[in-house]
Lab assay of single mutants.
Amino acid sequence: SLEELLKLARHALRHGEEIHVLDRVITDEHEIKRLIEELERLI
């Protein structure tokens, strides 16, 4: 769900981890922040 993805993204950002989204691995902090902003808009 989007909520789950948002939780994962926030966790990854906090802990400096990578996040796997739709067969992509996002490691860049700015990309993760952008993902979080997009998800928050959708929810």
Rank of each mutant, 00 (worst) to 15 (best):
S1N: 13
S1A: 13
S1C: 10
S1P: 10
S1M: 14
S1D: 15
S1Y: 14
S1W: 14
S1Q: 12
L2H: 05
L2T: 04
L2N: 04
L2I: 09
L2Q: 03
L2K: 04
L2Y: 10
E3R: 10
E3P: 04
E3H: 10
E3C: 09
E3V: 11
E3G: 06
E3I: 12
E3K: 09
E4I: 11
E4Q: 12
E4H: 11
E4C: 06
E4G: 07
E4A: 12
E4W: 12
E4S: 10
E4D: 11
E4V: 11
E4P: 02
L5T: 04
L5M: 10
L5Q: 05
L5I: 08
L5D: 01
L5G: 00
L5S: 02
L5E: 01
L5K: 03
L5H: 02
L5V: 05
L5R: 04
L6S: 00
L6K: 01
L6Q: 01
L6C: 02
K7A: 15
K7H: 08
K7V: 09
K7Y: 08
K7N: 10
K7G: 06
K7T: 08
K7E: 14
K7W: 10
K7R: 13
K7L: 11
K7D: 09
K7F: 09
K7S: 09
L8D: 05
L8H: 07
L8M: 11
L8F: 07
L8R: 14
L8A: 11
L8S: 06
L8I: 10
L8C: 03
L8T: 07
A9Y: 12
A9W: 12
A9C: 05
A9E: 00
A9N: 00
A9V: 09
A9I: 12
A9P: 00
A9K: 01
A9H: 01
R10Q: 13
R10D: 04
R10M: 12
R10C: 04
R10H: 11
R10F: 09
R10G: 02
R10S: 04
R10V: 09
R10K: 13
H11Q: 10
H11M: 06
H11R: 10
H11L: 07
H11W: 08
H11A: 09
H11N: 09
H11G: 05
H11S: 07
H11Y: 07
A12P: 00
A12N: 02
A12K: 04
A12D: 00
A12H: 02
A12E: 00
A12F: 03
A12Y: 02
A12W: 02
A12Q: 03
A12S: 03
L13S: 04
L13T: 02
L13W: 05
L13D: 02
L13G: 01
L13C: 02
R14F: 15
R14G: 08
R14T: 15
R14S: 14
R14I: 15
R14N: 12
R14D: 14
R14V: 13
H15A: 10
H15K: 09
H15Q: 08
H15I: 07
H15C: 05
H15G: 05
H15V: 09
H15R: 09
H15N: 13
H15Y: 15
H15D: 05
G16C: 05
G16A: 06
G16T: 04
G16I: 03
G16P: 03
G16S: 07
G16H: 13
E17H: 14
E17F: 13
E17D: 07
E17Q: 13
E17K: 15
E17T: 15
E17V: 14
E17M: 14
E17P: 02
E18Q: 12
E18G: 14
E18N: 10
E18V: 13
E18P: 15
E18W: 07
E18Y: 09
I19W: 05
I19A: 04
I19F: 12
I19G: 01
I19M: 12
I19Y: 05
I19E: 00
I19S: 01
I19H: 01
H20W: 10
H20A: 09
H20C: 04
H20M: 12
H20D: 04
H20N: 08
H20R: 15
H20F: 10
H20I: 13
V21G: 04
V21M: 12
V21R: 03
V21Q: 04
V21W: 15
V21E: 02
V21C: 06
V21S: 04
V21D: 03
L22G: 15
L22Q: 12
L22D: 13
L22E: 11
L22H: 13
L22N: 15
L22Y: 11
L22R: 11
L22K: 14
L22A: 13
L22M: 13
L22V: 08
D23H: 06
D23E: 07
D23R: 02
D23I: 03
D23A: 04
D23M: 04
D23W: 03
D23P: 03
D23G: 14
D23S: 04
D23Q: 06
R24V: 08
R24C: 04
R24D: 04
R24T: 07
R24M: 10
R24H: 08
R24A: 06
R24L: 09
R24Y: 08
R24G: 05
V25L: 09
V25P: 05
V25Y: 07
V25K: 06
V25R: 05
V25Q: 05
V25G: 03
V25I: 13
V25E: 04
V25H: 08
I26P: 02
I26K: 01
I26M: 08
I26L: 12
I26E: 01
I26Y: 15
I26D: 01
I26W: 13
I26N: 01
I26C: 03
T27H: 10
T27E: 06
T27S: 14
T27P: 02
T27Q: 10
T27W: 08
T27V: 12
T27A: 11
T27R: 12
D28R: 07
D28V: 07
D28C: 05
D28S: 13
D28F: 07
D28Q: 10
D28M: 09
D28A: 11
D28P: 02
D28N: 11
D28H: 09
D28I: 06
E29H: 15
E29K: 14
E29S: 14
E29T: 13
E29W: 12
E29F: 13
E29L: 13
E29M: 14
H30N: 14
H30F: 12
H30R: 13
H30E: 13
H30D: 15
H30M: 13
H30K: 13
H30Y: 13
H30S: 13
E31Y: 05
E31W: 06
E31R: 05
E31A: 10
E31T: 08
E31G: 07
E31Q: 10
E31N: 06
E31M: 09
E31C: 05
E31L: 08
I32N: 00
I32H: 01
I32L: 13
I32F: 04
I32S: 01
I32K: 08
I32V: 06
I32G: 01
I32D: 00
I32M: 07
K33M: 15
K33F: 10
K33S: 09
K33A: 10
K33V: 12
K33P: 01
K33H: 08
K33G: 07
K33D: 04
R34W: 12
R34T: 12
R34V: 11
R34N: 11
R34M: 13
R34Q: 14
R34E: 15
R34F: 09
R34G: 09
R34C: 06
L35S: 00
L35P: 00
L35I: 08
L35A: 02
L35W: 11
L35Y: 11
L35D: 00
L35N: 00
L35M: 07
L35E: 01
I36F: 02
I36P: 00
I36C: 05
I36S: 01
I36D: 00
I36K: 01
I36H: 00
I36G: 00
I36R: 01
E37H: 13
E37F: 14
E37Q: 13
E37L: 14
E37A: 15
E37R: 15
E37G: 10
E37W: 14
E37T: 11
E38W: 15
E38S: 11
E38Y: 15
E38F: 14
E38C: 08
E38H: 14
E38V: 14
E38N: 11
E38G: 06
E38L: 13
L39T: 03
L39R: 00
L39E: 00
L39D: 00
L39W: 06
L39N: 00
L39A: 01
L39K: 00
L39I: 10
L39F: 03
E40N: 04
E40F: 05
E40L: 09
E40I: 10
E40Q: 06
E40P: 00
E40R: 06
R41Y: 09
R41T: 08
R41S: 07
R41P: 01
R41W: 10
R41C: 05
L42D: 03
L42G: 03
L42S: 06
L42P: 00
L42I: 10
L42Q: 09
L42V: 07
L42H: 05
I43N: 02
I43T: 04
I43F: 06
I43M: 06
I43Y: 06
I43D: 01
I43H: 02
I43Q: 03
I43E: 02
